[in-house]
Amino acid sequence: MFIIICPYCGERDQTEFSSGGEAHIVRPKQPTELSDDEWAEFLFMRKNIKGIQFERWNHSHGCRKWFNVVRDTSNDKIHAVYKMGEKPPINK
């Protein structure tokens, strides 16, 4: 449980948000060309990092907008928040 600063609404409790998992997984541009291995990579394989993780969150009980969060999964400390489409403020 922690506080997330929604880039649209400001400081809110984590319970207002839904986690969307790992960020920056690019949707395949030509799905018909994908091999089974590439599909598995896209659909299922996750970095599941212990440490600094880039992830998506949705303010589901607020403005309902999606955005990105940089969070340390070993202590739940949030290092940055940035909007969809923006460049991460911390190097990946």
């Binding site: 984590q14 986690s19 212990k50 993780q53 992830e55 999964t73 202590n75 739940d76």
Partner: peptide, 8 residues
């Protein structure tokens, strides 16, 4: 479980 990845 919590809905997000965490090792805490």
């Amino acid at each position: 479980t919590d809905s997000y990845v965490s090792y805490t």
